[in-house]
């Protein structure tokens, strides 16, 4: 699929940047014909992935970097969210719904990412960081106004 646009964000691992990342990605994704409900789902997925990087990857240490790569093809947003934190010891267990290392958390971050996005993939190595890869398609073949032939 032909690449139409791409962007990269790099920001400190502080909670305030969770909102920054999701709004930036949603604004970027809105170049495609996503519905408002789709964009809301993308925002939740980005929020969860960046939140995980800050909380679990870096253990709330605020001076590390989280990276977000986004690319657009004609009908798909592709996302890659990376940290260089502690990594996940047991990926299978981390993906179980309601598994959390913190009693005040629901352990549903990955459930939201998997529910709201497509082609979800998790790569992680102990001590080397975690990468979340996911995409979402607009699911329509509508022709934009002015593009009709």
């Amino acid at each position: 699929m032909q690449l139409m646009n791409q962007m990269r964000l790099e920001f400190l691992s502080i909670p305030a940047n969770v909102a920054f990342a999701r709004v930036a990605v949603a604004a970027f994704a809105s170049q495609l014909d996503f519905t408002l409900a789709d964009l809301e789902e993308i925002k939740v997925a980005v929020s969860e992935a960046v939140g995980n990087a800050i909380i679990h990857g870096y253990g709330h240490v605020p001076d590390r970097l989280v990276r977000v790569y986004a690319a657009l093809t004609q009908d798909t947003l592709e996302l890659r969210i990376e940290d260089e934190g502690r990594g996940i010891e047991d990926i299978e267990k981390a993906l179980e719904p309601a598994f959390s290392t913190d009693a005040e958390r629901l352990g549903l971050g990955f459930v939201f990412m998997q529910s709201f996005m497509e082609n979800f993939r998790l790569e992680s190595k102990r001590g080397r960081g975690t990468t979340v890869i996911m995409s979402k398609s607009t699911g329509n073949n509508m022709v934009r106004a002015g593009e009709a032939t």
């Binding site: 969860e48 939140g51 005040e104 958390r105």
Partner: peptide, 13 residues
């Protein structure tokens, strides 16, 4: 206008 699992965690707690 927006909630994620961190917000829900506060409600659950």
């Amino acid at each position: 206008s927006f909630v994620d699992s961190s917000g829900l965690g506060v409600l659950l707690g």
